[in-house]
Amino acid sequence: MRSSTAVRRTEQWFVRQGAPTMIEGYGFLTHVLPRMLPVLAFITVGSLAWLVPLRAAGAGRWVLLGVIVVVMVAAWALLSVFVRRLPTFSRRTTFLLVGVYAAMPLAVPLLQLVIDDTITAPGEELFGLVGFAVFFGVAFVATMVFTTYGLAGLVRAAIRFTLHDLRNSVYLLGRALPPMLFVTLFLFFTGELWQAMNQLSWQRVSLVVLLFAAITVLAAAARLRDEIGRVEQDLRPEVLALACKGTPLAGVEVAEPLQPKRLTGRQLRNLLVMLATRQLVQAAVIGLALFAFFVLLGLIVVTPAVAEQWIGAPPVMSPVLGLPAAMLRNATLFAAFGSMYLSVTSMSDNEHRRQFFASVLERVERTLAVRAVYLDVRKQVRD
């Protein structure tokens, strides 16, 4: 009984660590869908807000909206407590839950037609129905992906390591910023670039930033896959005992070394996401620091008269900070480029990889060691 409880609690530990795919027999119906319930219930109840402004008016409308919000939060909280125990549903219950969720995009618009007195064009009704269905479908797929790979746990872990990443980022900036500035510093003071940034919209600047982010993700995926391949699974008893400290398997005695278990494609992707999340958090921290650096540099060097001379007209001022918009867009552009450059550097340089990936790789090694003990205990329970 104790071993069975330890196995179940270890599965919960995998979920909190952002590595739920390490659970043996991990599947959509048995593990993913039950943990999706809080989000699905939140969206289902929230869809009722579509109906509120149609008949209610004045203060009554806000009261109804408030009730819906309270019910949404209550459903999320109650179901979150329920799914922490990793419940399993029968096939009939699974089909019922998915059917209720799938019926909401049709049920809510039909209910709208029943209670609404206003007459709308058939085209508008069809457009609203299709948009509602697309929203529910996208929300379902996104929730499934986030739940399958434990992204919520990974985000929480990334937040916990933010201060650690900040210290590492300062070290990385001190090592890599000088050579990067040698390439980008003169471009920052290019008049043609200031003219382009003065006219370029923030939407297009955002697309450029997303392009740099995509390059960072692709580089991280290629490099981190090699890092996962280098992770050594040392499964000696003393190593396993040290890895299991602070987990539900603490105190489990392993008499002899265990053999590493082959990882599935889904498990490898989960570990890849675990490493990439930390890499992206570090890139975001570096990007913010570079943005502040370039804004400060622009304030010191580029006076309003110089900016007007480069642009050829009075610069457009940002309504948020009261600074030239071209300066902020330039800083954003170079921060995104510098963040990409430093992220790739940290993965390609051996010293940087040891400095910034050591703790992350240790976490992966610990997860694999705990998984080995978990599989061994689980086998003993079943036998």
Score class of each variant (00 low, 15 high):
Arg371Gln: 10
Arg363Asp: 14
Asn350Ser: 15
Pro257His: 01
Asn330Glu: 10
Met340His: 08
Ala57Gly: 12
Asp226Met: 11
Tyr374Asn: 06
Met144Ala: 15
Val301Asp: 10
Gly191Trp: 12
Val370Ser: 08
Gly338Cys: 00
Phe356Gly: 06
Leu181Gln: 03
Val39Glu: 08
Leu375Pro: 02
Thr190Phe: 13
Pro105Gly: 07
Pro248Gly: 00
Arg354Gln: 13
Val108Arg: 09
Gly150Arg: 07
Leu272Gly: 10
Ala49Gln: 10
Gly153Gln: 04
Val281Ile: 13
Ala214Thr: 08
Gln267Ile: 00
Phe293Val: 07
Leu163Val: 14
Val344Ser: 05
Leu235Arg: 00
Ala75Lys: 09
Ile43Tyr: 08
Ile115Lys: 05
Leu258Ala: 04
Leu218Arg: 11
Leu263Asn: 03
His31Cys: 04
Ala358Asp: 14
Phe14Cys: 05
Gly251Ser: 00
Glu365Ala: 15
Ala331Trp: 04
Leu342Phe: 00
Tyr341Ile: 12
Ala289Pro: 01
Val52Met: 02
Leu111Arg: 05
Leu126Asp: 07
Val108Ser: 07
Val145Trp: 07
Gly66Asn: 02
Pro237Ile: 01
Leu37Tyr: 01
Asp383Phe: 12
Leu97Phe: 05
Phe212Pro: 04
Leu297Val: 14
Val301Lys: 09
Thr332Leu: 10
Arg353Asp: 07
Ile228Asp: 00
Phe212Met: 07
Asp234Arg: 11
Gln267Ala: 02
Trp310Leu: 07
Asp349Ala: 11
Ile228Cys: 03
Gly191Thr: 11
Arg266Pro: 05
Gln282Tyr: 08
Ala372Trp: 00
Phe82Val: 13
Ala139His: 02
Asp349Lys: 06
Val364Gln: 07
Val130Ser: 06
Ser4Lys: 14
Pro237Asp: 00
Glu256Ile: 01
Ala307Arg: 04
Gly265Ile: 10
Asp376Cys: 06
Ala250Ser: 12
Ala284Pro: 06
Val360Met: 14
Ile115Cys: 05
Ile23Val: 12
Pro304His: 02
Arg85Tyr: 02
Phe14Lys: 04
Val302Asp: 11
Val281Gln: 14
Trp76Phe: 13
Asp376Asn: 12
Gly58Glu: 02
Leu297Thr: 13
Leu48Lys: 05
Ala243Asp: 09
Ala289Ser: 12
Val141Cys: 08
Gln279Asp: 15
Ala213Phe: 08
Thr332Met: 11
Leu361Cys: 06
Ala331Asn: 02
Gln195Pro: 02
Gly58Ile: 05
Asp234Phe: 03
Val39Arg: 12
Leu48Val: 11
Ala219Thr: 08
Thr120Ala: 14
Arg225Asp: 14
Thr148Phe: 10
Gly60Phe: 09
Leu235Val: 01
Asn168Trp: 11
Val364Pro: 04
Leu37Ile: 10
Leu200Pro: 01
Trp62Ser: 14
Thr118Asn: 10
Trp202Glu: 08
Thr30Met: 11
Trp194Phe: 12
Pro315Ile: 03
Val364Leu: 03
Val69Thr: 09
Thr147Cys: 04
Phe89Cys: 06
Thr247Asp: 04
His31Thr: 01
Phe136Glu: 01
Val130His: 01
Gly66Ile: 03
His164Thr: 14
Thr147Gly: 03
Arg91His: 10
Ala56Glu: 09
Leu97Asn: 02
Tyr171Lys: 14
Val377Tyr: 03
Asp117Cys: 05
Trp76Val: 03
Ala305Val: 13
Phe135Gln: 11
Met104Pro: 04
Lys261Asn: 13
Leu321Phe: 07
Leu296Lys: 09
